[in-house]
Design a protein around this nucleic acid. Structure first.
Length: 877
RNA sequence: GCUCCCGUGGCGGAAUUGGUAUACGCGUAGCGUUUAGAACGCUAUCCCCAAAAGGGUUGCAGGUUCAAAUCCUGCCGGGAGCACCA
């Protein structure tokens, strides 16, 4: 038994005292910036999920240091946020106090895991030294026209009493408290992220991120290409603009729909005969919550604007105009042309209100071609099987089975479209847009779903927005030299629909910095995501009082080489951080435009019952208890061993014990070596038994171990680079099992083993390293840590086996496995194969048609082959 | 509805540039060690058919190939994100 508590605490203190983990500014070694998503220091303390990502980056950091990199590996606190404030409302403890208590607890817990952070670079977003620069970033965006105040319908959480960003509304409810979100018209601050939509899409191509994350960001930005087309209103000067991705269907537009909030309604007030009714409808839909709207998705409601007609610019026919809440104010122009034959929603609406349905697209007919070509064609032209599609839809949604009355949403060939008949959709889109453009009624247009980022929050525990409203000058930015705008301490932070800051007189009532006149401060604070959109810059130069970070240090350290964190931040934090970086780059502040070159997500760790850990279920695993009972090295290694890094996996205490057993084994082996390094030849180990084969004896055990060690060195390096920590741990276990079986390991081999173990179980590796006397120099002048050692290089010749399994198949079925020299040639292999009794039996008197010979050695990365390289010969008869 | 991901022993998983399916760990059983237990060590362990030789097996059904967990098509099941986006 090894005393993990004693060993781990000893080394944690030593490493910190010796400054082993410091990142050195401007060091000549190549830099490596290895970053974790910094945690929100919640009152619940560290979750077992946190150390998974932290251990992974720690392994990479230690590995990179041993490979000669100058590593920046920092940690800090995303300290502003609602929970601290809500806690304060309940208990009257000031958020500043509770937050700092939480930070201290988090720091202690994180340090108990032996993670190699450079604690001299710690940041805390709630400290004035930090949020001074958050405010500076606000002013930076403001001065470039990328921060503006506007009245807009916004998401309002009645429970948190604050507005929310689009990204913080999940299923129509508040991301934090799950209360149903309502819509409110308010004047709020926005960041102009939409200005960067195109760059935010394009940049994804050049970064090493999980494909699914990239796709999600792309979907969120939601680019669609189409045209903006103007519809004239009959007997009137006014026009209605619509956005469509399908200008090719315009001849089938038999009516129009505008959103209930559309300004045209107000403008046409005098002409609309049923205005009162329309107004009532608009009011009703405004009151609906998101959820009510969603519930009614299938049931379309609407009203005709009586007394006015629009003119379809393609065929000059008069068509009715409706108001309906299935058209959204916020997307496109807030108005659509409805083509019921080729859009399901329009179709459902048209059926309900008996509107004409005109077919203008016919599916392409494909005859006399193989099914495979149709498949290919479908992919290319997006043509689905028309009839099958109809059958499906009809069964599900329509009573009416008549084909010509259902919907066809795909592309095809134009009909009923005047001079454009016969053209394919793709071509017709261009031609029709051009044609309408010559009449001044259309232009090409790209639309995005992405909205500008609403950052105002009517809450206390955040960075104040540095703006002053003067009675004379209006909106005045706080001069940079007056930053930070300090968060006043003595306020009542109970929410009341306005920021608690309005209750602080000294904060609120001030003089205008421009004219000295009467003025008041903006009383809202910023969304905490603003604070976390730039923290990775601060780590480069965390103490700088003149700048958020010096240009030189940014140039040295940025961009982040590896970023690890949960997948829940896919849209919000990662998109916002990219936006900040792109804004700074466009302004010339920095020389790169993507902040995170490589990104990996950790999976969720579930409770032992397979459910999410939660207080109410009482199934939470406390990391402190695991560290106390089994040790930090066990905890670290277990979390790496659980399964693939990005997968969600249930905790299993038995599995933890398994890892602990492994470390005990290493400890015993290490100690047994301490006194037994001399004359180890006498302790001749028993021969290794081949598990699966009865093949001949393999070369001497010592040699065998050396082979395996070099293969393992190679594999550990590759696995760390590829984030395959679970198989890395497995191969360490295999190696140790072999060492134990042979009952000895030459000291020089054990030394190499300790080095490749050290990133995973740093305390144990360091302790054995010193105990076995590898340390250089006096204890007084500081022992030489294993982490100052160079990562071992593997000998590629030793990593190869001399003898391998030759697998012999007959017609693809394994019939024999024999030992053979690794460099066996095809003809030799054939000869050996044909001599095998088993093979002879299987071939019988059938004629051999051909041999297929496969060299596994060409494909070394394959795990199984890596440990048991071989050859395969397939005999086809 | 749209977009994407995933289905391998009793369990977590390994193997996915097509080439010995089930590495490693857990669990289980037997044996050894021990006063006892714990711990440790050894052996066995995918399932089914078969006396054996063999045959079968990676959600299901097909296809391509000398060879498929891996590639293709369809279906079934599970998960994630977006969601009336024109």
């Amino acid at each position: 038994m090894y005393n993990h508590k004693e060993i781990e605490q000893k080394w944690q203190k030593r490493w910190e005292a010796e400054g082993l983990n410091r990142a050195l500014d401007f060091d000549s070694k190549p830099k490596f910036y290895c970053l974790d998503m910094f945690p929100y220091p919640s009152g619940a303390g560290l979750h077992v999920g946190h150390p998974e990502g932290y251990t992974a980056t720690d392994i990479v950091s230690r590995y990179k240091r041993m490979n000669g990199y100058n590593v920046l590996h920092p940690m800090g606190w995303d300290a502003f946020g609602l929970p601290a404030e809500n806690y304060a409302i309940k208990t009257k403890v000031h958020p500043d106090k509770s937050t700092h208590e939480n930070i201290n607890r988090f720091r202690e817990q994180i340090q108990s895991l032996g993670l190699s952070y450079d604690w001299k670079r710690e940041v805390d977003t709630s400290s004035p030294e930090y949020y001074k620069w958050t405010q500076w970033f606000f002013l930076f965006l403001y001065k470039n026209g990328w921060a503006y105040r506007a009245k807009a319908p916004v998401n309002w959480c009645p429970s948190c009493q604050t507005v929310l960003a689009n990204e913080q509304v999940i299923d129509g409810a508040c991301d934090r408290c799950k209360t149903e979100v309502t819509q409110k018209e308010l004047k709020q601050w926005f960041f102009k992220i939409t200005d960067f939509a195109e760059e935010l899409i394009a940049g994804l191509d050049k970064i090493d991120w999980p494909e699914s994350t990239k796709i999600m960001q792309k979907n969120w930005i939601g680019k669609s290409e189409g045209a903006e087309i103007e519809f004239l209103i009959a007997n009137c000067e006014l026009r209605i603009k619509v956005f469509t991705t399908r200008p090719d269907t315009i001849f089938g537009a038999t009516y129009m729909v505008v959103a209930p909030e559309h300004e045209i309604i107000e403008k046409l007030k005098d002409k609309i005969e049923n205005y009162a009714e329309i107004e009532k409808y608009a009011l009703m839909s405004e009151r609906k919550t998101e959820r009510e709207r969603l519930a009614q998705e299938k049931e379309k409601t609407g009203l005709e604007l009586k007394g006015v007609k629009a003119i379809n610019p393609a065929n000059n026919k008069e068509i009715p105009i409706f108001v309906a809440d299935y058209v959204l104010k916020g997307y496109g122009t807030g108005a659509i042309m409805a083509v019921p034959k080729h859009d399901l929603r329009d179709y459902l609406f048209a059926q309900k209100y008996n509107l004409p349905i005109v077919e203008v697209i016919k599916p392409c007919e494909i005859r006399n071609v193989s099914p495979r070509l149709i498949r290919l064609g479908r992919k290319k032209l997006k043509i689905k099987n028309y009839h099958k599609d109809l059958a499906k839809r009809d069964n599900l949604k329509f009573k009416n089975n008549k084909e010509e009355e259902s919907v066809y949403e795909d592309e095809g060939v134009l009909v009923n479209s005047g001079e454009f008949n016969g053209l394919e959709s793709e071509v017709a889109r261009e031609k029709i847009t051009e044609w309408l453009a010559t009449k001044g009624l259309a232009k090409k247009k790209i639309n995005y779903k992405l909205r500008d980022w609403l950052i105002s929050r009517q809450r206390y525990w955040g960075a104040p927005i540095p703006i002053i409203y003067c009675e004379k000058c209006g909106e005045v930015p706080v001069p940079e030299e007056d930053l930070p705008v300090l968060l006043p301490r003595d306020v009542d932070f109970m929410p009341h629909g306005e920021s608690p800051l309005t209750r602080s007189k000294e904060f609120h009532k001030i003089k205008c910095p421009k004219c000295g006149g009467k003025a008041r401060r903006e009383s809202d604070t910023m969304d905490t995501f603003v604070c976390s959109s730039w923290y990775f810059f601060r780590y480069c130069d965390p103490k700088n009082a003149e700048e958020f970070a010096s240009k030189k240090l940014l140039k040295y350290w940025m961009p982040v080489d590896l970023y690890v964190g949960g997948a829940e931040h896919t849209v919000m934090h990662l998109l916002y951080s990219r936006f900040f970086t792109k804004a700074m780059h466009r302004n010339g502040l920095i020389n790169f435009d993507e902040p995170f070159l490589k990104l990996r997500h950790q999976g969720m760790i579930l409770a032992e019952d397979g459910r999410k850990m939660s207080k109410s279920l009482g199934n939470i695993i406390n990391p402190d208890e695991v560290v106390e009972k089994y040790g930090a090295d066990t905890m670290r290694m277990y979390e790496m061993f659980m399964g693939p890094f990005e997968d969600s996996i249930a905790w299993n205490t038995k599995g933890v014990i398994g890892v602990r057993r492994f470390l005990e084994k290493v400890w015993r082996l290490g100690l047994s070596l301490r006194g037994a390094t001399k004359g180890s030849d006498e302790a001749r180990p028993p021969r290794l038994k081949r598990k699966r084969l009865s093949g001949q004896a393999i070369s001497s055990p010592g040699k065998n171990l050396e082979n395996l060690l070099h293969k393992t060195i190679k594999k550990i390096g590759e696995d760390i680079e590829h984030f395959k920590f679970n198989t890395a741990v497995a191969s360490l276990m295999i190696l140790v099992n072999h060492m134990e079986k042979e009952k000895f390991a030459p000291q020089h081999l054990f030394e190499l083993f300790l080095k490749i173990l050290s990133p995973f179980a740093p305390h144990l590796a360091e302790e054995l390293w010193t105990q076995l006397g590898y340390k250089v120099g006096d204890a007084d002048e500081g022992s030489k840590s294993i982490f100052a050692e160079k990562w071992p290089e593997y000998d590629s010749r030793l990593a190869l086996e001399e003898e391998v399994d030759l697998v012999i198949q007959v017609n693809g079925k394994v019939r024999a496995v024999v030992q053979a020299k690794a460099d066996i040639s095809e003809s030799e292999a054939q000869k050996i194969a044909m001599e095998q009794e088993k093979i002879k039996k299987w071939i019988g008197d059938k004629k051999v048609r051909k041999f297929i010979f496969v060299h596994f050695l060409r494909q070394q990365s394959h795990y199984l082959r890596h440990l048991q390289p071989g050859r395969l010969l397939n005999i086809v008869v």
